[in-house]
Simulated scan of single mutants.
Amino acid sequence: MKTMTSSFPGFTLKREEFIKEIDSTVFLFEHSLLKCPVLAIKNSDSNKTFSAAFNTVPTDSTGVAHILEHSVLMGSEKYPVKDVFGEINKGGLTTFLNAMTGSDITYYPFATRNLKEYFNIMDVYCDVVFNPLLTEKTFEQEGWHYHQESLDSPLQYQGVVYNEMKGAFSDPIRHIFHHIFAGLLPGSTYAHESGGDPRNIPDLSYEEFCAFHKKHYHPSNGMFFLYGDAPLEEELEFLHDRFFSTFSDPGKRAEIKKGTPPDSPVFIEDSYGVDSTDTTEKTFLALGTNVSTVANREENTAFQIIANILFNSDGSP
């Protein structure tokens, strides 16, 4: 592989390193104007992979980031289709296709071995995240709306994400983790349920939904990932010419709120639905404490190993 120069049209190469363990050359670029990072892992793997990720930082538990993840995939101005994944799957050449909402980030990754399809899907992915239609009908379908079976029936809340999170919150373990984060990190980004708490999802308005996209789905608030044997120069040129160059001003990166950890024990009680009136042995107890931060990767890995030994293996008891 030829060595890249320190700059590239639209990008500046910040770091280049060969990693023997994965037999790959890793490049870290930064867009000259928008300052978004582009991480490229280049090797002979034909399974070409792309991902666009945005810092979607929630300020409440309405699930706006999760609803947006669903909604941008309902089409863009260039690709006005109701089911982007369904249309892509008709080609049948992808080896991975998904979108995921985390506690402070939303990912749009895919992979394929076909070079032509790789650039075609990259074009679709970037267009739907940067130029989605986001109609009010889509918001109501994917987020929430009022539903009434008949004139005599009571009004109900319905929606793809609303129903999904009702199912998620029927699991008491999900409740426990939600409360642990809220109790250990009050006032922080992680005290909120990014997927959406069914009790809070109907508080989200269409205007707030659109404003969240405008604020968070800017290249300056994102990170882009390239992997495999696709020509790196063509990938960077594709991203810059078709998408990044359409933005005349850099945006701001969303800031994560760290909150203030409690200095004394916090006790939280809540209830969850059961199928019968018999609540014998239906109580869950959990104890949590702050031990590290996500930036301390080596320490986090050590704690995960210790947790697997002490709690998660068959021999733990």
Rank of each mutant, 00 (worst) to 15 (best):
F96W: 03
P261W: 00
G259D: 08
K215W: 02
G273D: 09
T56F: 05
H192W: 15
D263G: 15
I121L: 06
G187T: 11
A168G: 01
V291I: 13
T189W: 04
G92I: 04
F224V: 09
K14V: 03
G251N: 10
R297I: 07
C126G: 05
R242F: 03
A286S: 14
I88F: 08
L232N: 07
L185R: 12
F54K: 15
S194V: 15
L93H: 03
D278C: 13
F225C: 07
N89W: 00
N290T: 15
E193S: 15
G183V: 13
F29Y: 10
T277M: 06
T94I: 05
E255L: 14
I201V: 10
I268M: 12
S220K: 14
I88W: 03
D45L: 11
F54C: 15
D83G: 13
F29T: 11
P231I: 05
S71G: 06
N163G: 06
G195L: 06
L34Q: 09
R113C: 10
F212C: 11
F225V: 13
S316I: 12
T101V: 05
A52G: 14
P250L: 06
I201G: 03
I306M: 14
G167P: 01
K252S: 15
Q148K: 15
E117V: 11
L204E: 09
A99I: 01
N296Y: 11
K14H: 03
T112K: 07
I306N: 10
K258N: 13
F8W: 06
L13M: 02
S205P: 02
D152S: 12
D23F: 02
K35T: 15
P80W: 02
A53S: 14
T25Y: 01
K166N: 10
A286Q: 08
F169V: 02
E69H: 07
N221K: 13
R253F: 01
F311C: 15
S24R: 03
A111P: 12
V274H: 07
T94E: 04
S276T: 14
T112Y: 00
K35F: 12
H147N: 09
P219A: 08
R242M: 02
M165P: 03
L34F: 09
T135I: 12
F284D: 02
S248H: 09
A254M: 14
S7V: 14
T12W: 00
Y125A: 08
E299D: 10
V72Q: 04
P172H: 12
N114R: 14
F130L: 09
S71P: 01
L13W: 00
D314S: 14
P198A: 04
T106K: 06
T112F: 00
F303W: 11
G91D: 10
A40D: 08
K90Y: 03
S248F: 00
I180E: 12
G222H: 10
A99D: 05
S32K: 12
G75I: 09
G315L: 12
K35P: 10
P317C: 10
L226H: 11
D241Y: 04
D203N: 14
F110C: 11
S194E: 11
V128P: 05
F181K: 13
P58V: 08
V160K: 07
T49W: 12
K2L: 08
H240K: 03
F119S: 01
T277Q: 06
K116F: 02
F139A: 02
